[in-house]
C-alpha cells in the first residue's frame, strides 16, 4: 500500500516544476500547483493514474489584502488505497478564474457552484455555473472578507427587500485582546464598512 507522501512524490515526478515540494503536516500531505490553468490536468492524472477516485471537498480561501487573493483547495481521496491528498492553487483577483474539474469528478459541479456563489471565483468550462445558495440575481459574494456579516442592501427591484440585518443584540461576537469579559464579548459589534 502506498503512503500519501509517496503518491504525492509520484505526482510531482510527472509534473516536475508545476508542483511544489509536497508538505506534510500531521500526516496530511499538501501539494501546491503553481499554475492554476493546469489544475484540471493534474487532477485528471491523480484520478486516472494514482487512484484518487473521490473528490471529498472543493473549497476556497480569501487571502484578503494579499496577492494572489484566492486559493482554491481540492481534497482528494482514494477509496482503494485510503490516502488523502490536498491540492492548492492560487489565482489573482483580476483573473478570478480556474479551469473546472467537474469533467474529472462530477461531484465538483455543485462544489464549484458553491465556491462561485460564495466567493465569486469563476470556473472556466463549467457546464452550469449558476448560484446555488443565494438566489439568482444577487449581486454580491457573501463569503468574501470585505463583505459585512449583516449583508448589504441590494438595489435590484425584485429583491428590494433585502437590507442589512440589524446587529444590535447579536450575534455574540468576540473581540480579541479585550481587558475584561465585557470588552471581549460585547453585546453587539458594528460591522466594518
Amino acid at each position: 500500500m502506498p503512503t500519501p507522501l509517496e503518491l504525492a512524490r509520484q505526482l510531482r515526478e510527472t509534473f516536475s516544476d508545476l508542483l511544489a515540494e509536497p508538505l506534510e503536516f500531521r500526516g496530511e500531505v499538501t501539494l501546491v500547483v503553481r499554475d492554476p490553468e493546469r489544475i484540471a490536468e493534474v487532477c485528471r492524472h491523480a484520478k486516472e493514474t494514482l487512484g484518487y477516485d473521490l473528490l471529498l471537498d472543493l473549497s476556497s480561501v480569501d487571502n484578503y489584502g494579499d496577492e494572489p487573493r484566492w486559493t482554491v483547495v481540492y481534497e482528494l481521496y482514494g477509496l482503494a488505497h485510503a490516502c488523502h491528498l490536498r491540492l492548492k492553487t492560487s489565482v489573482g483577483e483580476e483573473k478570478g478564474s480556474v479551469p473546472t474539474v467537474s469533467t474529472v469528478w462530477r461531484t465538483a459541479d455543485w462544489h464549484e457552484r458553491e465556491v462561485y456563489d460564495m466567493m465569486g471565483i469563476r470556473f472556466a468550462g463549467h457546464p452550469d455555473l449558476r448560484r446555488i445558495l443565494m438566489w439568482e440575481g444577487y449581486p454580491y459574494h457573501p463569503l468574501r472578507k470585505d463583505f459585512p456579516l449583516a449583508g448589504k442592501p441590494t438595489d435590484l427591484p425584485e429583491v428590494a427587500f433585502t437590507r442589512a440585518a440589524p446587529l444590535d443584540g447579536g450575534p455574540f461576537v468576540t473581540v480579541a485582546g479585550g481587558a475584561d469579559s465585557i470588552a471581549r464579548e460585547p453585546r453587539s459589534r458594528t460591522p466594518e464598512d
Binding site: P142, P148, L149, A150, F161, T162, A165, L167, G169
Partner: peptide, 17 residues
Amino acid sequence: TGGMYRSYSVLQGVDNI
C-alpha cells in the same frame, strides 16, 4: 424576527413580506 440569524441570508421577520 429572524431570531438568532442576524445574517445577510435571512429575512428579518416574515412580517416583512
